[in-house]
Structure formats: C-alpha cells, structure tokens
Design a protein around this nucleic acid. Structure first.
Lengths: 213, 213
DNA sequence: TGTACATCAGTGAACGCGCGTTCACTGATGTAC
DNA sequence: TGTACATCAGTGAACGCGCGTTCACTGATGTAC
C-alpha cells in the first residue's frame, strides 16, 4: 500500500496539511456566522481534528483569524492584479474596473470585511507581523499607481494621486458597507453598487479634471 | 424627609429611571469595549443594580442593544437638523456640512457604528419595530431633501437626487470607516476625513453639474 | 538495509471562566374602599 | 385619613452552556549510525 495515499475507512493520524485546512474551515465558518461569533472549536471540528490540534499551528484564536485575513488579501490582490493587467494603464475605465472588482471581492466574502480592515488585523505586537501588514497594502498601492498614471494623462498634479486614491477607496468602502448592510436595496431598490461606483467615480474624476483645466 | 429625594448613605430600593440608566451604561461600555464584547452583566453592574434587574426593562441583550442604537440615531438626527437649519437650503456648503457632521458624530461614537447600521439593528421580527426602523432613516431623508434642492438649483434632474444622496452617504461611510480603522493616518498622514469629504464632494457634485450643462 | 531515538502532529479529557438568563423572593408603591 | 391588597421593580443565588486553552499522552515520521 502506498505511503502517501490515506487508507480508506481509517483516517490517517497525521492530517498532512492541517494548517491550511483550518484556515479554510475558519474562512467558511466566518462566512456563515461572522467573525465575531467564530469559534476555535468549530474550526477544529470542521477540519475533523480534536479541539487541541489547532494549537500546534496557531498560537491562539487571534493568530488563526489573522491568517484567515491573509487569505482574503491574497484573493483580493490576485483579482486586482488581473484587472490591472487586462486594462489600459491609467485609464478611467481601469480605475473603475478595479473599484468594481474590489466591491465584488468584498461582497463575495462579507464576513472578511472586519477581519481585513478592522482593528484586530492591524494591532498586534509581534515579530514579523509588521511586514505582513505591509503586504496587506499591496492592492492599495496598485490603485495609487494607476491613479498617478491617470493624473499624468489628465494634467492633474501628481501629488494629489494619494488623496484621490484614498477618496476612491472611500467610495468603494462606503458602497460595500451600504450594500451588504442592505441599505442600497432599502432606500434605492433600483440601484446596485457597481453602477453607483461607475457613475460617482466618473463624476468625481470628471470634476477634478475640469477644475484643473 | 421628602419622598422623592433619595436618602443619603442608603441607596433606594427603586432606581427610578433604570431603563435609561441601563441604556447610558451600555452606551458607555460599548464605547469602551465595542458592541461585540458588550456584556449584559456589566451594564447592570455599572448601573449599580443586580444582574437580573435589566430583564425588567429589556426582553434580552439584543433588545437593550437596539435601544442603545436608538440613542445614537437620536443624537445624529439632532445634529443633522441643527446643521440643516443653520445653512442655506440646498447649497453645496450645506451638503458638505451635513456630511461633516455625520462624520463627526460617527467618529465621536465609533462603537455605535455596527450597532446603528449593522445587520442586528435591522433584522428583528417584532411588534412595532418596523416603525422604529423607519425612524432611523430620518437623517437620510433630510439629506435627500437638501440634495433635491441642490438639483433644482443646478438644473440637474431631480430624480437623480436619491442616487446622489446614496453616493454622498457612501463617501461619508467610507471615510468614517477608513478614519477610525486608522487607514487615513496610515496611508496619508496629512489628510483628515473632513477635508477629504469637502474636496471629494465638491469634485463629485461639480462633475455632475458640468455633465448636465 | 535495519534499528534506536528524537521530534513532530495528533488525541481526549478536563479546567476555568464569563456570560445570558431564570427563579423564588422581598421591599416599595399605588389604589380602592 | 387609614388600611388591605395588587402590582411593580428590585435582589441574590444559581443554572447551564460554550468556548479558549492546557496537559499528559500516543502514534507516526525522519534521521544518524
């Protein structure tokens, strides 16, 4: 019988990839019940191990949650990178597409929201956490770069790129928030966050370009 | 000895206004530790009563939290009303001032954030909760009214007022979010949400007005 | 190739804690006569 | 004005539950000789 194949019927003593299995299990649970109500023991149960097993791979609950957050950023960054590479550098369509993909990502995993940008993901006094936190900003710097290119095109002062990027991020954040707290469908049932981003970002950037000409 | 004056030294058996005292205590605790970690027993302790007492006034924990949310909306609406009455109807400055006051309110009571616009405040199958939830929208309708007046002035289609209001709300929401998760000071230390709102709302509304002329 | 041994990744049972909520109670208050 | 009684707003003790975490353990794996 081959070593690496798990025997049928009897589960192997060693899991093989428990760390990742726990992250995935936790991510699923968080999707279902929200990060606040996430329970360490449930993650273990879902991964099919004892409640003590996770502590071989994570210092504590917070440590696991942090890793789940990393998973979220990984997915988001990959998506943003894809959008960026498929569109013209610094065009308004690129900026909007990036924003829409941001909204899509965040919306498709709403429970990651607080996990990714909440306090908890940021405040941890530990060894090499600082660089991990830097990593989490990758998507934002992608946006800044595109905005800077747009500024160059439009003859807008480039130093403003950072502020413009923050404002665009704000709009996306706000739309995400309103969207998955169901405020959009509540107050304006005909609208959706993707079109709203498109129209408001166009008006905003348009207003900036006009002001500078 | 007068009836209504509490005796010094010995605390009276009846509190007198325990319901409100509990709401205030809960609000303070939520400010300190966040709504998620808020504990019913702590509210009772802070109000100086036994842990069972709150259940004379609130069905359960959720019920108390809902009432705390109402307090938040009460403060917000009062502030928005004040700003509206002090400014010119439908001017861009009024819109921005309302947004800034929104940010100020939300920022000054960050822990109310999820309580006021999170799921929990919205999903409750109960008697006359529906009308209470309607009440929570008062501030938003104030904004819509001002935006409609602005539209009239600028010759923008008035039906767009709702969408424009949602977009402005989004921007404020996003700025609040970024602000008190410390993302603004992290990425753009020189900026603050108030000026950001002012500049982005002006560009956005300017862009809309230009597009229509 | 075989064996001894260190190390690793699990188990299962238990701990302690804090919280939401209930229960039988008791002191205070309001009211009908 | 005084009294009996219903009702209200508290008390204090206890419950049950679920969760985070630890502990001594054991089975599996990798490696030096």
């Amino acid at each position: 019988m081959p070593r690496n194949e798990p025997q049928q019927g009897s589960k192997p003593y060693h899991h093989g990839d428990l760390r990742n299995a726990l992250i995935v299990a936790a991510a699923e649970l968080i999707e279902e019940t929200g990060a606040d109500h996430f329970a360490m023991v449930d993650a273990a149960r879902r991964a099919g191990v004892s409640t003590a097993a996770p502590y071989r791979h994570f210092r504590d609950r917070e440590d696991l949650l942090f890793s789940v957050g990393e998973l979220g950023f990984y997915a988001l960054d990959a998506e943003l990178e894809r959008i960026r590479d498929q569109n013209k550098r610094g065009s308004i369509d690129t900026l909007i597409a990036m924003g829409q993909s941001y909204i899509r990502c965040v919306t498709s995993m709403p429970a990651f929201f607080t996990l990714m940008w909440g306090e908890q993901g940021m405040v941890r006094g530990e060894e090499n956490v600082q660089e991990k936190i830097e990593e989490r900003a990758r998507g934002f710097w992608m946006l800044v770069e595109q905005v800077a290119a747009w500024c160059e095109r439009e003859g807008v002062d480039e130093p403003a790129a950072l502020e413009i990027s923050m404002n665009l991020w704000s709009i996306c954040m706000g739309l995400c928030h309103l969207h998955f707290n169901r405020q959009i469908e509540r107050f304006a049932p005909g609208l959706n966050p993707y079109d709203m981003l498109s129209s408001s970002a166009r008006a905003y950037l348009g207003g900036l370009a006009v002001a500078k000409h």
